[in-house]
Design a protein around this nucleic acid. Sequence first.
DNA 1: CTGAAAGCGCTTACAG
DNA 2: CTGAAAGCGCTTACAG
Lengths: 334, 334
Amino acid sequence: MRHTTINDIARQLQLSPSTVSRALRDHPDISRVTKEKVLALAAATNYQPNLIAQSLQTRRSNNIGVIVPEIRNTFFSTVISGIEEVAYEAGYTIMVCQSNDTYEREVVNTRALAANRVAGLLVSTSQETVDFAHFRVLMDQGIPVVLFDRVAEDLAVSKVIVDDFDGAYAAVAHLIVTGRRRIAHLAGSPLLYVSRKRCEGWQAALRDHGLSVPEEYLVRGGCHEEDGRRGMQRLLALPERPDAVFCINDPVAIGAFLCLREQGVAIPGEVALVGFSNNPNTALVTPRLTTVNQPAFDIGRQAALLLLQHFSGEQAVAPQTIVLKTELIIREST
Amino acid sequence: MRHTTINDIARQLQLSPSTVSRALRDHPDISRVTKEKVLALAAATNYQPNLIAQSLQTRRSNNIGVIVPEIRNTFFSTVISGIEEVAYEAGYTIMVCQSNDTYEREVVNTRALAANRVAGLLVSTSQETVDFAHFRVLMDQGIPVVLFDRVAEDLAVSKVIVDDFDGAYAAVAHLIVTGRRRIAHLAGSPLLYVSRKRCEGWQAALRDHGLSVPEEYLVRGGCHEEDGRRGMQRLLALPERPDAVFCINDPVAIGAFLCLREQGVAIPGEVALVGFSNNPNTALVTPRLTTVNQPAFDIGRQAALLLLQHFSGEQAVAPQTIVLKTELIIREST
DNA sequence: CTGAAAGCGCTTACAG
DNA sequence: CTGAAAGCGCTTACAG
């Protein structure tokens, strides 16, 4: 009913705790006989080293903190899977928090993770976050922070992102090449870097092809399915409907898709639709949606790998930004 | 570059660490003036209590361990979301591991979480797990374990499950009532309790309605999309094809759906299809799939709530099993 | 090859 | 109202 400790083993074997500790960690000084005795008793008593005590003593933690807007969101849960894989291989455990896309909870989560003395922090910020002081506090305390997907432009930390601008540009260029002229954009919060970049990609593609569209074709909303529905509804109510819609991400595209389906608007006949992320369900709907692939699992892996580098570095490793390639997946909605 | 400690504050304020500790925790003994001074300095120096040290001292942890087969799987990520919500409200952080559906990794994860001295463990077992000794070790050490969805029948722990038998029965009865007679089942591993129960529900419904089907209509596989594809392929190759298929879960149903779509088999015209879980994407495909709703988010919440009860109990709380209701969601695939 | 001692950052009886 | 002391379970110089 209680955990066996090093002291328990030491007492039973008439050894000092120091010796037991060393035997357990296979220290070269300790004799084979002693090691064997210790190991045998440890196994027999189900000894589990107390990582809490170990962490306190060594001031090193084997936990990595992760903050995402929402765990149940295919993109983020896939990223977390990737993070967990790398963490597991390196002997770390992940502590996962969700901000529910609010700044307040993100701050609370950050503090909680700091109090838990995580070795490092992996985060994708909430869509409300404009002040990054809560991360700076951790960094000042020597806890490395790595941002992924939703990053802070002016925070000097390592980041893993995709070429959002290029991905958006390619998607919109594809729409233009396939004959679309009135291309609307269901955008996200302008506070989000990814949101701005994708919007810029849309604008640049239009401009480069000599197209101009009415202001109302830029509809700002959130990043969820509901926002896609609402945004699409607004677009459909316009005097001159767009003939194509580029969406900030796949949940929004799915929302737009559902709205179109309900209204009986033909895809791609009347309106072409493009998403962003390549969530599995975009390949499930009919017509299958054209989207921009974002390697979610790999984003998680790379972010974790980057964080691991910061751990090993003797002194502070210079922040670096990894930009993963997107890829336009052309399917049936365009 | 270092965390402020209670000792730092004590030194600067010419107080003893004990007093600072008490002031921080708002102990009634401490004078208002002292409290204010301590709190002010704590805020100014970004003091974050070291939960590691606190845990070691109090032998209480504020972490909850979670093990699921796979984080990126809508059902599990939704459950985790529910767990996180309850944990957050109660001041706990969750440590999430994935077993990748292997017994070996589940054991390693369990040990790692035990070493981290989590306050309790929430787990959905791997499909290989038949030996539950690794959980017993934790329980013997006073760490409560709560199982959800994929549970161990004969382990005396609290559990959160759904009425799998009833859900399966209702689904198959619905198929029969709507005129189907050759109803196959894409089953999961017989090692899994949920898998057995759903299979039994299928059998019971057939029997109660005086139907018998050829042995080949029971196809055993895994729980993933790929398994659904493969299983469906086998069913289609049969001399007498089934006119309906009840799937162990939605990923398998989606796999079966994709196989049918590729082969040009009409749903529900030639083959009716029913899934289990009510994953969001079942409502996205065309035709939309009939499925059995499993309240994933609520399963997570209930499991976490149950675990919380075990924490508060003075002595060991008796294990209890919460059975949540499923609901047949009839859509267009039947 | 082994042990005594100190300490990681905290809490909490026990004194005063 | 405040402090000295002990201790949670470990590790690691320092001795021997």
